[in-house]
Design a binder for these strands. Structure first.
Length: 552
RNA sequence: GGCUCCAUGGUCAAGCGGUCAAGACACCGCCCUUUCACGGCGGUAACUCGGGUUCGAUUCCCGAUGGAGUCACCA
């Protein structure tokens, strides 16, 4: 068989050579140790936390080392394409602080290693497929779907590994004339890799590959033995081929991808070998998991877990800094420790390493995210919090935009109890914050909690509020204000010190806490809130008196 | 089913042959306190099992079990 002739028959329109492309995309001129990473999403327009998790690794690796991080659109499956997906991907990631140096953008490509959209790279893939054919390392395969299914049936009956390989790769043995005839007859065909794997050998004698993974150490697995499709009947490459060609030509140094790619790693290794290229360093990340209904761990799924969509977090109003902080704590086991030691350091000062990444899948933990978010938001100024909230509301809750009419008012609210050595940690995410402070706005104010049972039992609710209102002076300082409450407490037969009440519950109707709670419920509608005096100062005298009067 | 990956408390995790087996979140209790928080102190709770190797295994090897992933002209 004259493979060169076959290559010309198959790819008459390909005139460029591999050397042309090598010259077009030379080695990158980067500082020593600089890493080149890429994100290769398929344009389904859906990104979830798992994608962000991986993107974060790419971003850190590249930007920490003075390297390059680029975006490549992997749209070799036209069935998946969703209009506007590129925009969604870029914007979503940007929101969470992930920015690309190179690659596809809304305005077209940026960078000199393009095209960055796989569907535009047809000729490149075909050029390298042609090279493989011309060297006898790949061949056209005319097997139909039915024929492949039949082969599979036979294999199952014989208890053999299913797939196209060795003697089952029937098109391997086609002569030039047969191929030419098939093509003339218009038969569709794919290009398959002619694998070196020999399934007739006993398992112990089959070749194994050893790949150094930056996260998992040395991977020892059987070499590929399948004649994997590299070019589909449409001339478009499969993921495997596109990955190898692109990451070589785009000079990617580190390929970060989920562990679900581990089983196909041998294919990629063989492809790199056959093409005569040095493979990149692989970083197979553990999957982010979720607990399913039966209580089992399972990989995050696009279809089943819409609440893990990135949009969900934007919707809820999680601050991007909090999400970043959370992701880093599950990404690098030493981050949490570092953060405790460096509470005020910029997150980018943390040295991220693949070695500190976990190899087992972590369960997504909302509790932890919330806890981290509290600390992160504490460090954000009221002014910035105001802007963040306003932007969020504009997008997701336009009906509350009036909250932002009085900037000084809202900023004071957001800052309640946040100063001092033991600041409050009330803020978690936008949605929750709005609910939390809603009583500051008359249209959202409502009585949500009941008055304390002790006071209700004694029938003192109105009495407490009446006396409180009578003695109320808006200009009182905090101490004077509280002394008045003490006076009311004593007067009505409640304990001024909660301890006294605890020791002698029979001697009092309740304690000062119960009295305060009455005021709290009347003013805020809830039993829980920050300091009452502080809130009254923000609420203003008029509103305070008005709310108290309602119960008299 | 074949292949691959993974295996320390409810969750995330330190550990890399000798530890009373860290820490964080969650939970519980106490303290502080005008409520709620915040904070402080304390507590419940773990090396999947079985064989080796070794003076000694959570740690190394093998096997089992369990969980996950993957077996496409999808990525």
């Amino acid at each position: 068989m004259d493979y060169n002739k076959l290559a010309e028959l198959l790819f008459p329109h390909i005139t460029k050579t591999p050397e042309d492309y090598e010259a077009l995309y030379p080695e990158r001129q980067l500082p020593e140790g600089a890493k080149v990473t890429r994100l290769g999403p398929s344009p389904t327009g859906f990104i979830h936390l798992g994608n962000l998790y991986g993107a974060f690794v790419d971003e850190r690796l590249a930007h920490q080392s003075g390297g390059t991080f680029f975006l490549r659109i992997e749209d070799t499956d036209d069935k998946r394409y969703v209009e506007g997906a590129v925009e969604i991907i870029i914007n979503s990631l940007r929101f969470f602080g992930i920015n690309f140096d190179e690659g596809a953008t809304m305005e077209g490509d940026m960078g000199s290693y393009g095209d960055y959209t796989q569907s535009n790279r047809g000729e490149i893939y075909q050029c390298f497929a042609k090279k493989l054919v011309s060297e006898g390392k790949a061949y056209p395969c005319f097997l139909t779907e039915d024929q492949i299914a039949e082969i599979r049936c036979q294999q199952e009956a014989m208890k053999l590994t299913p797939g196209i390989y060795c003697q089952f790769a029937k098109c391997r043995v086609l002569t030039y004339e047969q191929i030419e005839e098939n093509i003339k007859a218009g038969m569709p065909y794919v290009i398959r890799l002619k694998s070196d794997g020999d399934m007739s050998l006993p398992e112990e004698q089959r070749r194994r590959i050893h790949v150094q993974d930056a996260i998992r150490g040395i991977l020892d697995m059987p070499a590929n033995d399948q004649d994997t499709v590299i070019l589909k009947a449409t001339g478009i490459p499969t993921y495997h081929f596109a990955h190898v060609v692109d990451d070589h030509l785009m000079r990617t140094t580190h390929v970060v991808r989920g562990a679900e790619w581990l089983p196909s790693l041998p294919i990629h290794v063989e492809l790199f070998e056959k093409l005569g290229w040095e493979p990149p360093i692989y970083c197979h990340t553990a999957q982010l998991m979720k607990l399913d209904e039966e209580g089992n761990k399972r990989k995050l799924s696009k279809r089943k877990d819409p609440e893990l969509s990135l949009d969900y977090y934007r919707n809820q109003g999680y601050h991007p800094a909090a999400v970043r902080e959370y992701l880093l704590t599950i990404l690098n086991s030493n981050f949490e420790e570092w953060r405790i030691a460096n509470p005020d350091a910029d997150i980018d000062e943390f040295e991220f390493t693949t070695e500190k990444m976990s190899t087992s899948g972590a369960l997504f933990d909302l509790n932890k995210l919330n806890d981290i978010s509290k600390d992160v938001l504490l460090k954000i100024s009221a002014a910035d919090l105001f802007d963040f909230l306003k932007n969020w509301a504009a997008e997701f809750k336009p009906e509350i935009m009036h909250m932002f009419d009085d900037r000084a008012y809202l900023e004071k609210i957001l800052d309640i109890g946040r100063d001092g050595a033991k600041p409050r940690k009330d803020h978690i995410y936008a949605q929750q914050m709005v609910e939390n402070i809603s009583y500051f706005f008359d249209d959202m104010f409502k009585i949500e909690d009941s008055f304390p049972a002790e006071v209700e039992a004694a029938g003192d609710t109105a009495a407490i509020l009446t006396k409180y209102l009578e003695t109320y002076d808006h200009s009182d300082d905090q101490e004077t204000w509280f002394n008045k409450i003490r006076a009311i407490t004593e007067e009505l037969g409640y304990a001024v010190k909660p301890k006294d009440f605890k020791r002698n519950p029979d001697q009092y109707k309740g304690h000062v806490g119960h009295v305060s709670t009455v005021i709290r419920v009347a003013l805020m509608g809830r039993q829980q809130s920050p300091d009452v005096w502080e809130i009254q100062q923000i609420l203003g005298e008029e509103r305070t008196r008005e709310r108290l009067s309602r119960f008299i």
